[in-house]
């Protein structure tokens, strides 16, 4: 049975899959000045959407514009770059045009953002307990989470079984895996609706990565969380994503369900990218390469997709 392709969302904030639309990006174009003065556009006229209770994965090579999209969605300006066109709507409210204090309110309560090095994301001068207390205060959830006995279920949910042992630690003394779990707990403490994982699983050891991916699926199902995951590892999108986008040179080369993308890719570039994944037990002497034909096909696909609205 052929899988159905995802369709663009309708205007009344409800996606075709029947889930409620949370985030919508229309024609986002970010211009970036490289140190040598060259100006590149990545992403270039990218449109996408994320529903509640859905994991959208954006895959692509380094420099394809994944992080720029993720940062724009959290309203973070990247250095030496500017948004020249496009719109980011969170339940119809523009994140790019809204005022600073309103954006701060949205970030406190609705958006969480994870970066690759979880330990570096803590304020190095305060303990985990102070960090979580601040999160609760900013998200205005003191009434629900003022008592520390209320915190245990959240810690168990992210796989920390003895939270009292970590609460008084400074971030320096945490292991990277534990820090990642605490950052995920921070998102749950704030009660966010959108979790942006900007290559957050890069560099995490495989066992923890599998656990965290399962955890993301659990959070999606139980809390109806919308998760946007950017990655350079196509295996991650196969395991965790509901829908996936393959970015190439700032444009969308392929969009669809992970199974469809990995089993029957339409674009030659995606096919070449899949060939580059190392597989256990494979008898290939060397990994595949992305040749000129694949690049050409990628550019054609990007051009075709940029004329459509997703």
């Amino acid at each position: 049975m052929a899988e159905t392709e995802p369709q663009p969302p309708s205007t009344e904030a409800s996606s075709p899959e029947g889930k409620k639309l949370l985030l919508e990006v229309e024609g986002l174009t970010i211009e970036r000045r490289l140190p040598d003065g060259e100006i590149i556009r990545a992403p270039d006229a990218v449109s996408l959407w994320v529903n509640r209770g859905e994991i959208l994965a954006i895959a692509g090579e380094r420099g394809s514009g994944k992080s720029a999209i993720a940062q724009a969605l959290a309203g973070l300006p990247a250095p030496r770059s500017r948004i020249i066109h496009g719109e980011v709507l969170l339940e119809g409210e523009s994140l790019l045009k809204t005022g600073r204090s309103r954006l701060r309110q949205i970030r406190r309560k609705r958006i969480a953002f994870l970066e690759p090095d979880p330990k570096a994301q803590f304020n190095p001068f305060i303990t985990v307990r102070q960090h979580l207390r601040e999160t609760i205060r900013l998200a205005e959830r003191q009434s629900e989470l003022a008592d520390e006995s209320e915190w245990s279920p959240i810690f168990y949910e992210v796989g920390i079984v003895e939270p009292e042992k970590v609460l008084d630690h400074l971030p320096d003394t945490l292991s990277p895996d534990l820090a990642l779990r605490i950052m995920l707990a921070t998102a749950l403490f704030a009660g966010v609706e959108l979790l942006i994982c900007n290559q957050a699983l890069t560099g995490v050891e495989p066992y923890t990565r599998t656990q965290v991916m399962n955890l993301l699926k659990q959070m999606r199902d139980e809390r109806n969380l919308a998760i946007l995951l950017t990655t350079d590892n196509l295996r991650e999108i196969e395991t965790v994503a509901d829908r996936a986008i393959v970015l190439f040179e700032g444009g969308i080369a392929e969009i669809g369900t992970p199974e469809r993308i990995l089993k029957s890719p339409k674009c030659g570039y995606t096919r070449a990218l899949i060939e580059c994944i190392p597989r256990a037990g494979s008898d290939r002497a060397r990994l595949g390469e992305i040749d000129t034909d694949a690049l050409h096909e990628g550019r054609i696909a990007v051009h075709r997709n940029s004329s459509q609205t997703y």
Binding site: Q71, A74, L76, P79, R104, Q105, R107, R108, K109, I111, A112, F113, E115, D117, A120, Q121, F122, N123, P124, E134, T135, L138, A139, M183, T186, A190
Partner: peptide, 14 residues
């Protein structure tokens, strides 16, 4: 400004 905790602090709402 480019450190991770700057971005995390900003998204946290500081």
């Amino acid at each position: 400004e480019l450190r991770g905790d700057t971005i995390a602090g900003t998204v946290l709402g500081f």
